[in-house]
Simulated scan of single mutants.
Amino acid sequence: MTNALLRVKGLQLSYGGINAVKGIDLQVNHGELVALIGANGAGKSSTLKAIAGLLNPSAGDIHFANRETKKLPAYELVQLGLGMVPEGRGVFKRMTILENLQMGAYLKTDAKEIERKLEEVYSYFPRLKERLSQLAGTLSGGEQQMVAMGRAMMAQPKLLLLDEPSMGLSPIMVETIFDVVRSLSSSGMTILLVEQNARLALQMANRAYVMESGLITLSGSGEELLEDSRVRTAYLGE
């Protein structure tokens, strides 16, 4: 258990009289890419929001970076090294691309370090460098996803939470975004990925969990779940 960066135990979430998450356990170890897949409404995004401090669990424990974090506000989790690319991207639409990226580094004080991180983001997303002064609200969905990912990368998170990064994107843009996710994972970044494109997620993941109606019903390596007949029938359209 010592290699765990994130441990979730018995997590329950309720709102509006609905039990969205019904007591789940999951773990993400240092350097892993872990996928959480499942149908719409399974509780995946709610789980991520609880980990990120955006929803209050009704029961259970969350440990991140050797701290009990269930009661910590989101901004303290950012200071501990938690980064999130939210569903729907959440870019600052009236700010430029550059300003959005700089917002990701608001805890950083070393100007040279910020400049180095910006160059790193540009190496992943050259298109952003070409349009730094463009307002984020005028970008396509795929370009906004690049900005949201770049902004999260600027904070150098220990754990990056990705909530439905491919949602609403063209196939070619999905490929671009997932190439970056693959590269980040290869470079050693720890990632927890919630994704409806189960095949893509499982092909990349070291390990994965399947969530149905607020419960985790299956877990295993990405390869094992790709071969599992239940997963193939329910999520891979076979």
Rank of each mutant, 00 (worst) to 15 (best):
K158G: 08
G141I: 06
P157F: 01
S187V: 01
T190I: 00
K158W: 03
P157G: 00
V174W: 06
Q144H: 12
L193D: 02
Q203A: 15
I172F: 10
T190M: 00
V181W: 12
F178T: 01
L200C: 09
R207P: 04
M189K: 07
T109F: 06
R131D: 05
K129E: 02
L200P: 07
E113G: 12
M211I: 15
S187K: 13
I191K: 03
P126W: 01
K158R: 11
E195R: 14
P171R: 04
T176W: 02
E212R: 12
L200N: 10
P165Y: 07
T138Y: 14
S187W: 00
P165C: 02
I191S: 02
S221K: 09
R127Q: 02
G168K: 10
T138L: 13
T176L: 14
L128W: 09
P171T: 01
P126L: 01
L218W: 10
L159D: 02
R207A: 11
A152N: 04
G150L: 00
K129N: 03
E224G: 12
P171V: 08
L192W: 05
L161A: 01
A198F: 03
L192E: 02
L159V: 11
E143W: 03
K112C: 03
E175M: 00
M146D: 08
L193G: 04
G141L: 10
M149E: 02
L132I: 15
R182Q: 13
Q145V: 07
Q203C: 14
I114Q: 15
G150H: 09
L215T: 05
N206M: 10
R207E: 08
A201Y: 14
Q203W: 08
M153D: 02
R131V: 10
E164N: 13
R131E: 02
A136L: 12
L193N: 01
M204F: 15
S187G: 08
